[in-house]
Structures are given as structure tokens and as C-alpha cells.
Amino acid sequence: MQKKYNGKINPRNAVYTAVAVVLAMLPAFLNPYWVDVLNSIGIYAILALSLNIIVGHAGLFNLGHAAFYAIGAYTAAIINTRFGVPVLWLLPLCALTAGLFALIVARPIIHLRGDYLCIVTIGVGEIVRIALINNVFGMTGGANGIFGIDRPSVFGYTVRSPYQFFYLIWAFAGLTIFLFHLLEYSRFGRALNYLREDEVAAEGSGINTAHYKLACFVVGAAWAGMVGNIYAAKMTIISPESYSFWESVLMFTIVILGGSGSIPGVLLGAFLIIGLPEIFREFANARMLIFGAAMVVMMIFRTQGILPSRPRSYKLSKLRAGEGSP
């Protein structure tokens, strides 16, 4: 049913399918270390896709996304370790707490523009991290964090090895890609783009811009919260240092470098930013230097990202043909 948006088999879709097939078979040829790298890439890819809703589509700078990721992870960890609820069952709850948190913190700051909003989100991210270190409500375990989180189980199978996690994480990534693609082609997705392009014109065309700014924060945060859940289950131990400012920067960089507003771009960004430093590990410290230089060059010569977002296409010929009928 959704095929109508993809149109006929075009070269681009063929490439995407090929990449997906190769990715799905990769674990058969890789050792656990490299599979775990792919798992990290998957986690960052989903995080960046969720941030892409806010930064890429709505054009709101958010450098505190790790806060929502943390809320999700801690929700899963606390409920799982105290009440023994299976982690994956907690996915909706993690989405809810992270989304609710976003709603509460974003509400008073949402009218801020560009750089101001950006600075406030940095503050939010830091407040959450420091609150976690200070063992807020006596529930977060302070700087040591929370350990002994259960492994996730899917239909009775416990997900344990990196190979098993690979399929769990990338299945979630696949679902995210699918749903976010649909979201792009919808009233909601378009409203975010109108907001990014011209807020006054959007409001003047009847779009409740304040509502959509909040809504995109809540959706992005809820998704990051669910990734937090999976991360907690993967690590079985979480601590505040996993949710530092640097994490938010990484997610933001993936979105901007890969292609703001573009799902393929963000995925490629995740592979480059998380994957390349692992590949060039032998160059030790020089790799970060090269990496930084590459990023500077990119931003000078290709500001819209490596794979920029493309205009949506609609099947007009079909609609036009049917125009005569009532």
C-alpha cells in the first residue's frame, strides 16, 4: 500500500534495498567486535533520526537531545531493576516519560529562536546529566549509575550476544525509518517543513506553529527515550557519563553532516561519524584531527549535507486523470 510513494523501482530504491540486504548479512562475516560497532551505529542512527525530526524537519536547534535519551534509559533501568518488568515492555513507558519531559521543558522555551533555543537545550542536557549524578530522588544511583538491568527478551528468546542485538537494534531502526518516512509524507511532516522555511508564513497559512514546535520535540524525545530503553538493556549498566553533552553533539553532527531532513543522509552520517573513527582506530589521536578537518571541509563545500533531503514527489498524473470525476 505504501508503495505508491516509492513509485516504480528506480535506481535509488535498488541501492537502498541492496544496502539493507548487505547490512543484514554482514554479521555472518564479522567478529563480535565489529558487530558491536554496527550496533552502536544503529543506536546512533535511530537517535539521529529522532533528532532529525526536530533539527532537520522543523529547523529547531537542539543540542540537548541526550537528555531525552537518558530519561528513557533511566526509566527502563529503574522500573526494570526495582519491579522486574521486562525491559522491552517498558518501551511505551520510556517513550511516554521522555516525551512528557520534553513537553514540560520545551513549553517555556519553545518561542526562542535559533541560537537562543540552542543554548537553552544545552542547559537542559547538562541539568539532566548533573541531576543523574546527584542521585536525584535517590533513584538514579548517582555517578555509578544503575546496574543489573535485565537483557531484553523477544518471544521468549533472551537477546544476549552482539549478533542478536544487531537484529533487535536494526529491526527497530528499520521500523523507525519506515514510520518516519511516512511521517515525512503527511500533514504533520509538511507542517514542520513550513515552520522551518518561514514561521510567519506558516502561521499566516493557518498552521499552529507553537503546537508543532512542541509536538516535534515530544515525538523526537519519545523516540530517543525508546532508544534509551534498548541501550540500557544492551549495556545492562548505565551511568550519567553515557549522556554527556558530547553525545548530543554527536547526534547533531550526524544530522547536519549526513543531510538535514534526509533519512538516507542521517543513516550515512551515522555510519561515517560512528563507524569511521573505529575503522581508523590505528591512527590513534590523528583520526580525530582528520575527522574534524573533514567536517570543516564538508561544511564549507556542501552545507546541505552529504545526502541532502530531496523534494517530496506526489503522484499527480493519477490525481489529474481522476480530476473530472466528482
Binding site: 503527511s186 500533514r187 509538511r190 498552521i207
Partner: peptide
């Protein structure tokens, strides 16, 4: 105008206030 969006989508923005789909129906089509 929304300069980087298509002519079609510019006009679609005007339909927004007459449409109802929210986040969930947009996610699930």
C-alpha cells in the same frame, strides 16, 4: 513563500487548517 518546497506543497499548507490528521495517523498513514 516556502521557497525550498514545491509549488504544490506551498498550496497544501493552506489546506492544513482544513485537515485533521495528527501525529499518529501521520506516522501510520
Amino acid at each position: 513563500l516556502f521557497q525550498n518546497l514545491s509549488v504544490l506543497e506551498n498550496v497544501l499548507s493552506g489546506r492544513h487548517c482544513l485537515m485533521k490528521s495528527g501525529v499518529f495517523s501521520s506516522l501510520l498513514h
